[in-house]
Computed example of a mutant assay.
Amino acid sequence: MDQMGQLIKVGITGQGGFMGSHLFNFLGTKAEEITRVDFERSFFESNVELQKFVKSCDVIVHIAAMNRHEDEQVIYDTNIGLVKKLIDACEAENVTPKILFSSSTQEERDNLYGKSKRDGRQLLEDWATKAGGKVASLIIPNVFGPFGKPFYNSFIATFCHQIINGKEPTVINDSIVNLIYINQLSEVFFQEIIKKDTDEIQSYVVPHTTSCKVSEILTLLKDFKIQYVDNGQVPKVDLNSFELDLFNTFTSFIPKDYFPRKFTMHSDDRGAFVEIMRAGTAGQSSYSTTVPGITRGNHYHTRKVERFAVISGKALIQLRKIDSDEVFEYILDGVEPAYVDMPIWYTHNIKNIGNTELITLFWINEPYNPDDADTYFVKV
Rank of each mutant, 00 (worst) to 15 (best):
V229L: 15
V229F: 09
V229K: 06
V229Q: 08
D230S: 13
N231L: 11
N231E: 13
N231P: 04
V234N: 01
V234C: 09
P235I: 07
P235Q: 08
P235V: 08
K236A: 15
K236P: 00
V237R: 01
V237T: 12
V237Q: 00
D238K: 10
L239N: 14
L239I: 14
N240I: 08
N240H: 13
S241F: 12
E243L: 03
L244Q: 12
L244C: 03
D245A: 12
L246G: 01
L246W: 04
F247D: 02
N248L: 09
N248A: 07
T249V: 10
F250Y: 15
T251Q: 05
F253V: 06
F253G: 05
P255D: 14
P255R: 12
K256S: 15
K256G: 02
K256A: 13
K256N: 14
D257M: 07
F259A: 05
F259M: 06
P260D: 04
P260E: 02
R261P: 03
R261Y: 02
K262W: 00
K262R: 10
F263Y: 14
F263G: 00
F263H: 15
H266D: 13
S267A: 15
D268W: 01
D268V: 03
R270A: 11
R270M: 11
R270V: 09
G271F: 04
F273L: 15
F273R: 11
V274D: 00
V274F: 01
V274K: 04
V274N: 03
E275S: 10
E275Y: 00
I276R: 02
M277S: 08
R278C: 07
R278H: 10
R278P: 02
A279K: 01
A279I: 00
G280C: 08
G280M: 07
G280Y: 06
G280K: 05
T281G: 06
T281V: 14
A282K: 12
G283V: 04
